[in-house]
Protein backbone atom coordinates (compact mmCIF):
# COMPACT_ATOMS: atom_id res chain seq x y z
CA UNK A 1 0.00 0.00 0.00
CA UNK A 2 2.90 2.34 0.57
CA UNK A 3 4.47 2.45 -2.85
CA UNK A 4 2.23 4.54 -5.03
CA UNK A 5 4.26 4.03 -8.20
CA UNK A 6 3.29 0.37 -8.37
CA UNK A 7 -0.10 1.24 -9.76
CA UNK A 8 1.40 3.12 -12.68
CA UNK A 9 3.38 0.22 -14.05
CA UNK A 10 7.07 0.19 -14.90
CA UNK A 11 8.61 3.02 -16.89
CA UNK A 12 5.48 5.12 -17.00
CA UNK A 13 4.89 8.17 -14.83
CA UNK A 14 1.76 7.85 -12.76
CA UNK A 15 -1.26 9.77 -13.97
CA UNK A 16 -2.83 9.51 -10.53
CA UNK A 17 -2.36 12.90 -8.95
CA UNK A 18 -3.81 12.13 -5.54
CA UNK A 19 -2.94 8.55 -4.56
CA UNK A 20 -4.66 8.88 -1.18
CA UNK A 21 -7.99 9.71 -2.86
CA UNK A 22 -7.45 6.94 -5.39
CA UNK A 23 -6.96 4.30 -2.70
CA UNK A 24 -9.78 5.83 -0.67
CA UNK A 25 -12.07 5.43 -3.68
CA UNK A 26 -11.00 1.82 -4.22
CA UNK A 27 -11.62 1.17 -0.54
CA UNK A 28 -15.17 2.55 -0.80
CA UNK A 29 -15.87 0.53 -3.95
CA UNK A 30 -14.75 -2.58 -2.08
CA UNK A 31 -17.07 -1.78 0.81
CA UNK A 32 -19.97 -1.18 -1.55
CA UNK A 33 -19.32 -4.47 -3.34
CA UNK A 34 -19.36 -6.24 0.01
CA UNK A 35 -22.65 -4.54 0.87
CA UNK A 36 -24.28 -5.51 -2.43
CA UNK A 37 -23.00 -9.06 -2.16
CA UNK A 38 -24.26 -9.45 1.41
CA UNK A 39 -27.73 -8.23 0.43
CA UNK A 40 -27.90 -10.18 -2.82
CA UNK A 41 -30.64 -12.59 -1.66
CA UNK A 42 -32.67 -10.04 0.29
CA UNK A 43 -35.88 -8.74 -1.24
CA UNK A 44 -35.79 -5.00 -1.76
CA UNK A 45 -39.54 -4.52 -1.74
CA UNK A 46 -40.99 -1.20 -2.84
CA UNK A 47 -41.19 2.18 -1.18
CA UNK A 48 -44.61 1.57 0.37
CA UNK A 49 -43.44 -1.78 1.77
CA UNK A 50 -39.69 -1.76 2.06
CA UNK A 51 -38.01 -5.14 2.28
CA UNK A 52 -34.89 -5.94 4.28
CA UNK A 53 -32.70 -5.47 1.21
CA UNK A 54 -33.64 -1.87 0.47
CA UNK A 55 -31.50 -0.01 3.03
CA UNK A 56 -28.31 -2.04 2.47
CA UNK A 57 -28.65 -1.37 -1.27
CA UNK A 58 -29.28 2.35 -0.86
CA UNK A 59 -26.26 2.64 1.43
CA UNK A 60 -24.04 0.52 -0.83
CA UNK A 61 -25.05 2.49 -3.91
CA UNK A 62 -24.25 5.77 -2.17
CA UNK A 63 -20.86 4.44 -1.03
CA UNK A 64 -20.10 3.28 -4.58
CA UNK A 65 -20.98 6.69 -6.02
CA UNK A 66 -18.67 8.47 -3.60
CA UNK A 67 -15.97 5.89 -4.27
CA UNK A 68 -16.16 6.48 -8.01
CA UNK A 69 -16.13 10.24 -7.42
CA UNK A 70 -12.99 9.99 -5.29
CA UNK A 71 -11.22 7.96 -7.98
CA UNK A 72 -12.21 10.47 -10.63
CA UNK A 73 -10.98 13.29 -8.38
CA UNK A 74 -7.65 11.56 -7.87
CA UNK A 75 -6.88 11.99 -11.58
CA UNK A 76 -7.72 15.68 -11.55
CA UNK A 77 -6.67 17.31 -8.28
CA UNK A 78 -3.21 17.08 -6.74
CA UNK A 79 -3.06 15.30 -3.41
CA UNK A 80 -0.85 13.40 -1.01
CA UNK A 81 0.31 9.86 -0.93
CA UNK A 82 -1.04 7.80 1.98
CA UNK A 83 1.14 7.68 5.08
CA UNK A 84 3.38 4.69 5.54
CA UNK A 85 1.90 1.70 7.40
CA UNK A 86 3.70 0.44 10.48
CA UNK A 87 3.15 -3.29 10.33
CA UNK A 88 4.94 -3.98 13.59
CA UNK A 89 2.25 -2.28 15.65
CA UNK A 90 -0.61 -3.76 13.63
CA UNK A 91 0.67 -7.33 13.84
CA UNK A 92 1.53 -7.39 17.53
CA UNK A 93 -1.29 -5.26 18.98
CA UNK A 94 -4.05 -7.04 17.07
CA UNK A 95 -2.17 -10.34 17.47
CA UNK A 96 -2.43 -9.85 21.24
CA UNK A 97 -6.15 -9.17 20.98
CA UNK A 98 -6.77 -12.20 18.76
CA UNK A 99 -4.78 -14.47 21.08
CA UNK A 100 -6.90 -13.21 23.98
CA UNK A 101 -10.09 -14.00 22.08
CA UNK A 102 -8.84 -17.50 21.16
CA UNK A 103 -7.60 -18.49 24.62
CA UNK A 104 -10.00 -16.84 27.10
CA UNK A 105 -12.69 -19.55 26.91
CA UNK A 106 -10.50 -22.62 27.23
CA UNK A 107 -7.55 -21.39 29.25
CA UNK A 108 -9.02 -18.47 31.19
CA UNK A 109 -7.66 -15.09 32.14
CA UNK A 110 -4.62 -16.66 33.80
CA UNK A 111 -3.29 -17.53 30.35
CA UNK A 112 -5.06 -15.08 28.02
CA UNK A 113 -4.17 -12.06 30.19
CA UNK A 114 -0.36 -12.32 30.28
CA UNK A 115 -0.22 -13.53 26.67
CA UNK A 116 -2.18 -10.56 25.32
CA UNK A 117 -0.11 -8.07 27.35
CA UNK A 118 3.24 -9.56 26.30
CA UNK A 119 2.37 -10.04 22.63
CA UNK A 120 0.83 -6.60 22.15
CA UNK A 121 3.78 -5.00 23.98
CA UNK A 122 6.05 -6.05 21.14
CA UNK A 123 4.19 -3.64 18.90
CA UNK A 124 6.63 -1.13 20.32
CA UNK A 125 10.37 -1.33 19.71
CA UNK A 126 11.28 -0.28 23.25
CA UNK A 127 9.65 -3.26 24.93
CA UNK A 128 11.99 -5.43 27.01
CA UNK A 129 11.12 -8.97 28.07
CA UNK A 130 12.49 -8.67 31.63
CA UNK A 131 10.21 -5.73 32.22
CA UNK A 132 7.07 -6.82 30.44
CA UNK A 133 6.74 -10.34 31.92
CA UNK A 134 6.36 -9.29 35.56
CA UNK A 135 4.22 -6.35 34.44
CA UNK A 136 1.91 -8.70 32.52
CA UNK A 137 1.48 -10.89 35.60
CA UNK A 138 0.70 -7.91 37.84
CA UNK A 139 -1.81 -6.47 35.36
CA UNK A 140 -3.57 -9.81 34.99
CA UNK A 141 -3.90 -10.15 38.76
CA UNK A 142 -5.20 -6.59 38.90
CA UNK A 143 -7.73 -7.30 36.14
CA UNK A 144 -8.88 -10.48 37.86
CA UNK A 145 -9.27 -8.69 41.19
CA UNK A 146 -11.26 -5.85 39.64
CA UNK A 147 -13.50 -7.67 37.21
CA UNK A 148 -13.87 -11.08 38.84
CA UNK A 149 -13.96 -10.44 42.57
CA UNK A 150 -14.90 -6.80 42.91
CA UNK A 151 -17.46 -6.67 40.12
CA UNK A 152 -18.40 -10.34 40.03
CA UNK A 153 -18.38 -10.61 36.22
CA UNK A 154 -18.36 -14.18 34.93
CA UNK A 155 -14.96 -14.13 33.28
CA UNK A 156 -13.16 -17.49 33.33
CA UNK A 157 -9.95 -17.49 35.40
CA UNK A 158 -8.44 -20.97 35.18
CA UNK A 159 -11.12 -23.32 33.86
CA UNK A 160 -8.75 -26.31 33.64
CA UNK A 161 -7.58 -25.99 37.26
CA UNK A 162 -10.34 -24.34 39.21
CA UNK A 163 -13.30 -25.16 37.02
CA UNK A 164 -14.19 -21.46 36.53
Amino acid sequence: MTATDDTAGAGRKSRIKAPIEFFGGLFLLGLAALGFYGAIDLPGGELSRMGPGMMPRIASAAIAIFGAALIAESFITEGNAPERWHWRGIVFVFGGVLVFSLTIRDFGLAVAGPLSVIISAFGDRETRLVEIIPFAVIMTIGGALLFKWLLGLPIPLMPYLLGY
Partner: peptide
Protein backbone atom coordinates in the same frame (compact mmCIF):
# COMPACT_ATOMS: atom_id res chain seq x y z
CA UNK B 1 -0.59 0.49 26.07
CA UNK B 2 -0.33 -3.27 26.69
CA UNK B 3 -2.28 -2.73 29.91
CA UNK B 4 -4.88 -0.74 27.95
CA UNK B 5 -5.11 -3.61 25.43
CA UNK B 6 -5.70 -6.09 28.26
CA UNK B 7 -8.43 -4.04 29.91
CA UNK B 8 -10.12 -3.40 26.58
CA UNK B 9 -10.18 -7.16 25.95
CA UNK B 10 -11.60 -7.91 29.39
Amino acid sequence: FPAIVLFCCI
